[in-house]
């Protein structure tokens, strides 16, 4: 569930824990891998991704009920 932290890339800086509006990382400890305690409260604002200094260390997975509805392009 979102956000997803890549253990190998995360530098344990804690930026995402500090800035998340919804505090989905509540209970995370300093200098440890962030814990996603409240995944259902993520609003997909992307702030954690933007404030992360290590590219690819955090990404969001959109839950299926929030998938966009769109028209397919006509097949050639």
């Amino acid at each position: 569930m979102p956000p997803i932290i890549d253990e190998d890339k995360c530098t344990l800086c804690g930026n995402c824990v500090d800035i998340c509006t919804e505090d989905v990382f509540f209970g995370s400890k300093k200098k440890q891998l962030p814990r996603v305690t409240y995944p259902h409260e993520c609003v997909y604002c992307n702030a954690c991704v933007e404030e992360c200094p290590a590219e690819g260390a955090v990404r969001l997975r959109l839950p299926l009920p929030m998938m966009l509805m769109y028209k397919p392009a006509p097949t050639a």
């Binding site: 500090d18 800035i19 998340c20 509006t21 404030e51």
Partner: peptide, 12 residues
């Protein structure tokens, strides 16, 4: 309530 750097409806 959160962190002024990225809080509220104008967060991002």
């Amino acid at each position: 309530k959160a962190n002024t750097v990225r809080s509220g409806s104008g967060a991002t």
